[in-house]
Amino acid sequence: MPTAQHKRILVLALFAGLVSLWLATSTGGTAIPATEVLTHLLSNDGSTHDEIVDRLRLPRALSAFAVGGLLALAGAFMQVLLRNPLGDPYILGISGGASAAVLGVMLLGLPAFWHTPGALVGALFSTLLVFGLSRGAGDWRSERLLLTGVVIAAGWSALISFVLSISPPVRLPGMLFWLMGDLGDADRPLLPLLLMSLGLAIGLLRARDLNLAARGLTQAASLGVNTARLRLELYFLGALLTAAAVATAGAVGFIGLIVPHMVRRLGGTDHRILLPAAALLGGALLVLADTAARSVISPMQLPVGVLTALLGVPTFLFLLHRRVRT
């Protein structure tokens, strides 16, 4: 029985998602009256506005939505795995591994189709590296894990600099923008949307297990959770969702940190509510951030990763400060 508060959180998240998409399709260099957007979405009259909405803004907005949802879910899963609200694919170096792998694929000149599998290999490898190295004896210590993640991320960024320095100069601006987290070329939202739904579906099947695992894996095992399997699923899902996000939009940081925290603050600590709400709010947040990124200094465009970092860095510091105090 979801409580009234649970329902309010879901309605709010859904509303935020819809409003963000509506704003994203109406805002931009060519302002399209908000009331017209729906007509353009539903019909096809061949007008310029129709083209802009259907071909440019909607695919980009949906891609942003999917990437935001993917990252928020990946963050929520990693936080359970680490039992630490500072878990985030970007901070732990998972995004870095995926980015380096995709750059490698770009350098080899392989078609864009290979970005997602490449990113998955990079993300999985990075996950194994971070968790394997910080395991040590017994359970993970959060500090050790975060430190390992930060150092691995630094390693990836060195590798990325190396790839960039040997890349042909004409491809550099594109690669750089993509690295900072950019949705300029994200016009195929279908695969990321499907993967986000898959991640959400698996997460919902395991939602009660996640609630228990958040209080410790031994505790969860004593209540009947198959923790070995759960841990494996969380590793793999975390890496897969991060990889799909990175392949679509590069390394967008901090969404996985900010959004689950926001939902918990609203009262949604139960993962049966937290996961769908985080997917919707993560999507909404990135759509809004991307709309702002392409509007604030229009006609120039900012990479959206710059904006999410501006929001994420203070959130991280706030959470860290609060944890140290308690």
Binding site: R83, N211, A214, R215, G216, R264, T269, D270
Partner: peptide, 14 residues
Amino acid sequence: SRGFGASVFETVLS
């Protein structure tokens, strides 16, 4: 463990 701050009722219900 305190986990992520679930409520007392939610925890007992688990």
